[in-house]
Design a protein around this nucleic acid. Structure first.
Length: 425
RNA sequence: GUGGACGUAGCUCAGUGGUAGAGCCCCGGGUUGUGAUCCCGGCUGUCGUGGGUUCGAUCCCCAUCGUCCACCCCA
């Protein structure tokens, strides 16, 4: 009988890893609330057309990475490859835009049909943050400060910030024409990838990792020199604000981004600790997207953080708090003692909410049960055998202090005695 | 999508053309009611899957699936 295999690139997150996940989620949740962001939840599936219009027909994501299908009602649907499009759609659908401003965040799985490798999966998870209705560089700075503070709280050091401005879509279009003209003039020297990009996304040629392309790329016109005056001022202000906030950054004129909807500010937190998938968190402004999707013209900016990648950094840094050990382990040998222990465990949980009370389930002799008690990490064992039960008592045995003696307590007094003992430990 | 490496016990890995082993883990005993140490014993494998070569394949060949790494792309 053949085993059912998991889907390629889709991973199980096991209990051993969950502490890091929960710590990241809890820290982010708390921080986002502190900055005034509200959680939003939207479907994982949307009409295919939404992503095509938002992300761009000729991006890699739309051209070859989407999980698309036709459902029973003959609708063209797609598993979301990113979160922004769905959030914007939700804002439009629910009439959230009427002059209002929203700070929103979302977490959940995203799907892209890519070839998996380190830090890259077909189902991966993001924390996505969007500020809708703000146009100044102040929100850009605040959003970046939020991400910087998150790294600080998580104890992650090996990340650095790259920023750039793509200008308005008009100035980008003009620049793009200049760039295409330049590369056309040097067409013979372009490598295969770059020739392909020339048609689809010429800005990406600037990002080429091929050393032989460096000379041509170095001579290309710079986007920074062709920004419209407003975008230039916006970017200058953002840089000044980041300096005020003591957030170090590098201006990377080659930072473009793979999704078409970005305009003006783009940024990316990268790390040298994860191999070639080095983008940990990135985003930018999308001032034109909402109109493009049929909403009232509304400026906005957002970013997405890759949970798997940040979890990898957390694990490397070893900063996640250890998962909590048991406080009390109940050892009960024999049928009658077990039934008494079941009640006793409930009494303990009633009296000591928040404490982790583990009852030995599944039998075993004293030796086996004490071994499990030890492995549970519990500070204290409560021991109930036939002998104790007959006398209406339980033994309290400290497990982490060899010098401490075992003591005997009346059953009715166990919850309060254990409470006192734990408070002292 | 392209290229490379690798799939043997739950985990980490060794190994041979004659159907497999170690350590860890787990379980039991030494202690007829007391853990983490120690000693003794025990458990599990379609050797990723399918086909081919061979008297015989876990080993050689082909295919396939999966994992990892890089390109590409990106979180």
């Amino acid at each position: 009988m053949s085993q059912i295999q998991p889907i390629r690139g889709m991973n199980d997150v096991l209990p051993a890893q969950i502490a890091s996940w929960q710590w990241l989620e809890a820290t982010a949740r708390e921080l986002l609330a502190a900055y005034g962001y509200e959680e939003i939840r939207v479907p994982v599936v949307e009409q295919t057309q939404l992503f095509k219009r938002a992300i761009g027909e000729f991006t890699d994501v739309v051209e070859k990475e989407m999980y698309s299908f036709v459902d029973q009602g003959k609708e063209q649907l797609t598993l979301r490859p990113e979160a922004t499009a769905g959030i914007v759609r939700a804002a439009i659908s629910n009439g959230l835009l009427r002059g209002a401003r929203h700070r929103l965040w979302l977490t959940g799985p995203m799907f892209r049909h890519e070839k998996p490798q380190k830090g890259r999966f077909r189902q991966f998870h993001q924390i996505d943050v969007e500020a809708i209705g703000f146009d100044g560089p102040d929100i850009d700075a605040e959003l970046i400060a939020l991400s910087a503070r998150l790294w600080k709280r998580l104890g992650i050091g090996r990340v650095s910030l790259n920023i750039n401005s793509l200008g308005t879509s008009e100035s980008r279009r003009e620049y793009r024409e200049l760039l295409v003209a330049y590369f056309r003039a040097h067409h013979a020297k372009l490598d295969e990838d770059s020739r392909r990009r020339l048609e689809g996304n010429p800005l990406r040629i600037l990002d080429s990792k091929n050393p032989e392309m460096q000379a041509i790329v170095a001579g290309a016109p710079l986007l920074t020199d062709h920004l419209d005056p407003e975008s230039r001022a916006h970017f200058a202000e953002l840089c000044a604000m980041l300096r005020d906030l003591d957030i170090p950054f590098t201006i990377n004129p080659r930072l473009v981004r793979g999704l078409d909807y970005y305009s003006r500010t783009v940024f990316e937190w990268i790390t040298d600790a994860l191999g070639s998938q080095d983008a940990v968190c990135s985003g930018g402004r999308y001032d034109g997207l909402i109109t493009q999707l049929g909403g009232d013209a509304t400026p906005a900016i957002g970013f997405a953080l890759g949970i798997e990648r940040v979890v990898a950094l957390i694990e490397q840094a070893g900063t996640a708090p250890p998962s909590r050990a048991a406080d009390v382990y109940l050892v009960a040998v024999g049928e009658a003692p077990l039934r008494a222990a079941l009640k006793l465990a409930e009494a303990l949980r009633e009296a000591l909410p928040g404490r982790r009370i583990e009852l030995n389930v599944g039998g075993g002799n004293f030796k086996a049960q004490f071994r499990r008690a030890d492995r549970s990490g519990a500070q204290l064992a409560v021991v109930l055998g036939a002998d104790e039960l007959a006398r209406g008592v339980a033994q309290l045995k400290p497990l982490r202090d060899a010098a401490a003696a075992q003591s005997e307590v009346a059953l009715a007094a166990v919850p309060s005695e254990v409470g006192v003992w734990l408070a002292r430990a």
